[in-house]
């Protein structure tokens, strides 16, 4: 046996090296995406300067790039605001769902609820989009009008609503879409809490409310991770948002009015952007911003998750 070992190890080494090219695909794709977006996006930054990130106007010109104005700020701010709205709404719902599934539901119902959340996660985003356009936006439209007429003095509700297509509608739709992801992260951590802590909490005479709060405190890094990953999801979602956000180059100051996000901007403009000099490059630059945002929230999220494991 001892003599056979080295030979065996050699074939195993071969197996290892043979798999490396496949294993590194993800890395290569990310690198390539980063490279393409940078290489194509930088010319826009060079030509227009930082103005391309800070301007709020979007005035394409078919002939002369000098005469065109491209400002990504409304889209970047729109991405951030819609994603933040989504996370703020989705977090309490996801935590409630976790408690419902893990603590309240009888074990059979628990399985059914879990499968339903899986279906929610797997439902194509375009289906959320058509629901947004066909149901959510129309029922929100009169509510927005009401908000504007009563609270119109507040900047948040000061603008003219346009048929329910708005930053807030996009945020709400995104909230629904990211619930399964936040839920998945939080539930996994919650379930991983050793039983002895639950028993300790119960043995002190804590009510369900008191001990779930305590246990949620224990997995706080996982909750933060869920928020970060959910934020990343919301920021990168494209088609559903593009259908309900209204696609107007406004800063998202008034949330009941139409706005735009980076991904919906790309979805709407990239197809014809090659007709306008440098517009495509501006959109690549927007893509780069989106990529950095996505990777950063993912990285921080993973970092948080490793902290849970160390602690618990």
């Amino acid at each position: 046996m001892a003599q056979k070992r080295p030979a065996e190890a050699r074939s195993d080494k071969l197996f290892y090296y043979a798999l490396i090219p496949f294993a590194s695909t993800a890395f290569l794709i990310i690198l390539l995406t980063l490279f393409v977006l940078t290489a194509k996006g930088l010319p826009a930054l060079e030509f227009y300067g930082l103005k391309v990130l800070t301007s709020t106007r979007w005035l394409p010109n078919e002939f002369d790039p000098e005469k065109a104005v491209y400002g990504l700020l409304p889209a970047i701010a729109g991405t951030l605001v819609t994603a933040i709205i989504a996370v703020v709404i989705a977090l309490p719902l996801s935590l409630s769902l976790t408690v419902l599934v893990e603590e309240l539901a009888p074990s059979r119902v628990r399985d059914i609820l879990s499968s339903l959340v899986d279906v929610m996660a797997g439902m194509p985003t375009i289906v959320y989009g058509v629901w947004g356009i066909g149901f959510l936006a129309p029922i929100l439209a009169p509510i927005y009008s009401g908000l504007q007429s009563t609270l119109g003095s507040l900047p948040l509700f000061s603008c003219e609503p346009t048929g329910g297509f708005s930053i807030l509608t996009a945020g709400l739709l995104l909230a629904i879409m990211i619930i399964p992801f936040i839920f998945a992260v939080v539930k996994e951590a919650y379930r991983a809490i050793p039983a002895t802590y639950r028993e300790a909490a119960l043995s002190l005479g804590m009510t369900r409310y008191e001990y779930t709060r305590l246990l949620m405190g224990m997995i706080k890094p996982a909750i933060i991770a869920g928020v970060l990953l959910g934020f990343g999801r919301a920021a990168s979602e494209t088609v559903a948002v593009a259908l309900v956000v209204g696609n107007a180059f406004n800063l998202p100051l008034c949330i009941i009015g139409p706005g735009i996000t980076v991904s919906s901007l790309i979805a709407n403009q990239f197809g014809e952007a090659n007709l306008y000099p440098l517009m495509q490059n501006v959109l690549y630059l927007g893509g780069l911003v989106l990529l950095v945002l996505g990777l950063a929230s993912n990285f921080l999220g993973i970092l948080m998750l490793t902290r849970v494991r160390v602690r618990v």
């Binding site: 977006l37 893509g287 929230s297």
Partner: peptide, 18 residues
């Protein structure tokens, strides 16, 4: 694993652009 998980977070529209 980290990169594969990160790929999950890349907006799919960027994959289209790539």
């Amino acid at each position: 694993r980290v990169f594969t998980m990160s790929l999950l977070e890349i907006p799919t529209i960027l994959v289209g652009m790539l």
